[in-house]
Amino acid sequence: MPVTIRTLNKRKQDGEKFSMLTAYDATFARLISEAGVDAVLIGDSLGNVIQGRDSTVPVTLDDMVYHTQCVARGNQGSLVLADVPFLGAATLDRILDASGALMQAGANMVKLEGGAWLAEAVTVLKRNGVPACVHLGLTPQAVNAFGGYRVQGKDE
Rank of each mutant, 00 (worst) to 15 (best):
D44H: 03
W117R: 13
D63E: 09
R53T: 00
G129L: 12
A142W: 11
K17R: 14
P85C: 04
P131L: 08
P58I: 05
I42H: 04
A89T: 04
D25R: 09
M20S: 08
Q152S: 14
D38N: 14
R127L: 08
I42P: 01
I95Q: 02
S55R: 05
K154S: 11
N108W: 00
D97N: 13
A105I: 05
D14L: 15
Q13H: 07
Q104R: 15
L81F: 15
Y66A: 13
D14Q: 15
L92S: 07
F28W: 13
A39S: 14
I5C: 11
S45Q: 11
I95L: 14
E34I: 02
V3W: 01
L125I: 06
L8A: 09
R150Y: 03
A90K: 12
A89K: 01
G100Q: 13
Q13D: 13
S55I: 06
R53D: 03
T68K: 06
N128Y: 07
L46G: 05
A145L: 15
G148N: 12
V57W: 00
A121G: 05
N48G: 02
G114Q: 05
C133W: 10
A26Q: 05
A98T: 08
A116H: 12
L79C: 06
L61R: 10
P140L: 01
C133V: 13
D93Y: 07
L138D: 04
K17N: 10
G115I: 12
A39L: 14
V124C: 09
A90H: 14
